[in-house]
Simulated scan of single mutants.
Amino acid sequence: MSQWILLRGLTREARHWGAFDAALVAHGLVGAGERAACIDLPGNGVEHAHAAPLSVIEMMDFVRERAMSLNVRMPCRVLAMSLGAMVATAWAERHPDEIERLVLINTSMRPFARVTERLRPAAWPMLARIATGWTRPDRCEALIHTLTCNRDDTRDADIAHWADLRRTHGASAANALRQLAAAARFRAGRDAPRCPVLLLSSAADRLVDPACSTRIAKQWRASHSVHPWAGHDLPHDDANWTCEAIAAWLDAHERTRDIRVANP
């Protein structure tokens, strides 16, 4: 089984995955005794001391080097969210032999989406409040939770935990702006990556219009599944649905491959 790499998005880090790695194991997506490799983008988490590059391509080079240093088996599978999905796309486009499968969650990228789809106008006032409250961890994380999560039963615990992460390894305001600039500038190819791609999106995403994923999937003729109520942070809101969608997609590809082998 190929190894999974997990990439988070804007200013988020590996520890924001929470118990998602356990869900991967429970659904058989990660083998017994193995773990997915959670790699932080430069400027986030354990890499918070690094200046975030102003280009997604440079972020990709950084992540790729980290994967090599961790001895990740190639070709690997990459599951990535938002800005991380742009990094994963750049990797698959430039080093296709290293990526076996690609799962992109609630992402957006040129030339498939307009500015008002990539960041919904209704979210702009809250993003401004997040920016002005960047040095106030609890307030900032409460706003981020409201904007990105539709599951509320763990809200208080989430905010307390995320605020602690911000106090220890939080991304700086400067790195947040640099990552946002890199995301805005990134342009993917109109042709699909060589590996199979699955798009997952949330119908109730308040940050990014799910039309972005729909358009990418249509252009690339890629598989696409839509969650009916989750927010932008789909793995947080419904880890089981996310894993079930990935497992079903992988099973479908395996069946198709078996049919092709049996009927060359």
Rank of each mutant, 00 (worst) to 15 (best):
W241L: 06
P75H: 05
D61S: 11
V208R: 09
A217N: 01
D191S: 07
R12Y: 04
L54E: 15
W17I: 08
H253C: 11
R114H: 14
R221L: 13
A176E: 14
R257P: 14
E98D: 04
T148P: 02
T135V: 13
P111D: 12
G31E: 08
R221M: 13
L29Y: 01
R166N: 04
P53Y: 03
D209L: 12
A252L: 07
R129E: 05
R120V: 13
I57V: 12
W241F: 06
L165T: 08
I130A: 09
N240F: 14
D40W: 10
H161I: 03
C212F: 07
S213T: 06
T116M: 00
V25L: 12
L41D: 01
V226D: 09
A157H: 02
R167Q: 07
Q3T: 06
C243D: 08
R129I: 07
R215E: 13
L83N: 00
A14G: 08
A67R: 08
R190C: 14
A122W: 00
L200T: 02
G189Y: 04
R151S: 15
A184M: 09
D205V: 11
P121L: 05
G43V: 04
R66T: 10
M81F: 06
L83Y: 02
H224D: 01
I259Q: 08
D40E: 14
P121V: 11
L200R: 03
A142D: 00
D209W: 12
W4H: 08
M86T: 05
A160D: 02
P210C: 05
E34R: 10
E47M: 15
A171Y: 14
W124Y: 11
G33F: 00
M109I: 13
L250A: 07
V56S: 07
A230F: 01
L165Y: 08
P264F: 00
A176T: 07
A51M: 12
H169G: 09
R185I: 15
R194D: 03
R66F: 01
P42G: 07
A32P: 05
F186S: 01
A51G: 10
V30W: 00
D258H: 11
V103I: 13
R120A: 15
A222D: 01
H16R: 11
W91L: 05
D237H: 02
N71M: 15
W91K: 00
A92Q: 01
A26T: 03
A222F: 02
G33Y: 00
R178Y: 11
D156S: 06
R110C: 09
S108G: 15
A36S: 02
N240W: 15
R114M: 12
